[in-house]
Design a protein around this nucleic acid. Structure first.
Length: 190
DNA sequence: CCGGTGATGCCCT
DNA sequence: GGGCATCACCGGT
């Protein structure tokens, strides 16, 4: 049987790279808010930095579910971050969306982001969620369905992908599982 | 420009 | 009760 999200079921690191350039389409009060993914990080249950490392819990349940759903978590008492679940059912893996290039609906993003400068609308994982109005109510959402869609795009040229260690973690700090589109101005600050 | 830090709630130990 | 896949602001340079 075929599945529109079969491409998400493979190795999480490969999927993290493949997600670069893919498009997120959000509908908020009838307005389309659209952007293209420019920075990602891979997380897997075999990796000490991953929420799924210590097993399946109420918080991480979605991460162990089928690929193509959204894993949203709350952190630092005030921020949400969003991940695309990858791998096969029962495998705890997901890709954190760290930064997006705004394409459409910038008025809504500016409003949601309290009129910050455009370059700061979506250049960080919690900023992305704020701009796209993503919170816990979308945890587990199927990304093939409105009001939040993930749309596959042609692969980014391998030579324009930069690979580094991940940001803001204290475990497995040496693992080079962060990817971004080189020279894109909307990548988060390091 | 850059490093340090306070805010703030929830999950897991 | 500790620690967080962060952000924005502050002050010194």
């Amino acid at each position: 049987m075929s599945n529109a999200f079969e491409w998400l079921s493979g190795d999480v690191v490969a999927v993290a790279k493949r997600l670069l350039g893919c498009v997120i389409v959000r509908e908020i009060d009838g307005v389309r808010v659209v952007g293209r993914i420019v920075e990602t990080e891979a997380y897997h249950q075999t990796d000490a930095a991953s929420h799924s490392y210590r097993g399946r819990t109420p918080r991480t349940d979605v991460m162990f579910g089928p690929a193509g759903h959204l894993y949203v978590y709350f952190t630092y008492g005030m921020h949400y971050c969003m991940n695309v679940v990858t791998g096969v059912a029962g495998e705890g893996s997901a890709v954190l969306i760290r930064a997006i290039e705004p394409l459409e609906g910038l008025g809504v993003m500016r409003q949601n982001r309290h009129n910050r400068p455009d370059i700061e609308l979506t250049n960080g994982p919690a900023k992305v969620c704020q701009a796209f109005a993503v919170d816990k109510t979308l945890n587990g959402h199927d990304l093939r369905q409105p009001p939040l869609l993930l749309v596959l795009q042609p692969p980014i040229d391998e030579t324009t992908i930069t690979q580094t260690t991940r940001i803001g973690i204290s475990q497995a700090v040496e693992m080079p599982w962060r990817f971004y589109i080189a020279n894109n101005p909307f990548v988060s600050k390091t």
